[in-house]
Design a protein around this nucleic acid. Structure first.
Ligand code: MN
Ligand code: MN
Ligand code: ZN
Ligand code: ZN
Lengths: 161, 161
DNA sequence: TTCTTTATTGATAACGGTTATCATTATCAA
DNA sequence: TTGATAATGATAACCGTTATCAATAAAGAA
């Protein structure tokens, strides 16, 4: 029996029910700034919800994504992660800085104005050129974070041969 | 016994051998502008190379990627595709326009100058802010291509219930 | 509150793309 | 031509995700 919650209403109007697993998963994501995978979410919740199934995590993440309460991102290596979407009032749109050493993800929002202008121009041009209806875009930078960059100079574990 | 070829030299210096499968796969990718998946490559080559194994396709694609002869891209849905990289002389760098209806990919290279400037600025700023060493970036637009956009208004196959 | 309906759950099996294993084959320098 | 060994292909294993289905629980009705 999940307790009443500010999100409950959004579910009622959606032909869906406000359940324990949904409360747990949405609660977790709303409290972290991490970009978590399904399995990470499953593991994090194990102590408090030892009988939650991984299948339910996938299903719930899918539902929450369709409801636009969370955002799904696919990394360059194919991994899928999820992040909570802050309310419509605060502009949640941002891009990612991804460390190829440790897969850590950093949010950034630089040069919003200039970027927006360029995006708009590009969109218009591409629409004309290809007769393409653009719905969304994705921008990401890859590299090495502070920590991983240092580790380059440290000894790597010996290779067994 | 694969025949001599302009790429052969690159292999010899690489502690690797110039083989039939490698000639076939590199040949195919160099002749198409498509962004192909491993299985698509495997199927395309089946007629001429009926005993080529899918495993070899994966291994070869990995090698060619490490040799920077081809480029691997991961779509938003996790699919992996490969495209031939034109020589270093012609600037191969470009971005993608991806149709979420049919997964078709369009290359584009718009506003190179402006984009480059913005990218540079963003990179510098992010490097300062996060002490991050940026190595690469990825920009892609999602939407519906000409054809898929039209199909929205056509009848969808009846759902069985 | 209790009842009824049915959406949701979790265990399990299945799936699809990719990788590991290993005996066989083919490349290429000597 | 030959020998060392890199490369191949059949097969099994792997891993993230999805399908199936009987059991459970949310929420409106009584
Ligand atoms: Mn983010
Ligand atoms: Mn391309
Ligand atoms: Zn890192
Ligand atoms: Zn399309």
């Amino acid at each position: 029996m999940p307790r009443p919650h500010k999100w409950q209403l959004r579910f009622q109007g959606h032909v869906s029910r406000w359940t324990g697993p949904r409360e747990a998963i949405l609660g977790l994501l709303s409290k972290t700034s991490k970009h978590m995978s399904a399995k990470e979410i499953y593991s994090s919740l194990y102590k408090k919800h030892p009988n939650l199934g991984l299948t339910t995590v996938y299903r719930t993440l899918d539902l929450l994504t369709r409801m636009s309460l969370i955002h799904k991102i696919t990394l360059g290596n194919g991994q899928r992660r999820f992040e909570f979407k802050k309310g419509e009032k605060t502009d949640h749109h941002h891009h990612h800085l991804i460390c190829t050493g440790c897969d850590k993800i950093f949010d950034y929002k630089e040069f919003e104005e200039e970027e927006l202008i360029l995006i708009k121009k590009t969109e218009e041009s591409l629409t004309r050129k290809f007769n393409f209806k653009i719905m969304d875009h994705n921008i990401e930078f890859y590299g090495l974070c502070d920590k991983c960059n240092l580790n380059i100079y440290k000894n790597k574990p010996k290779e067994i041969r």
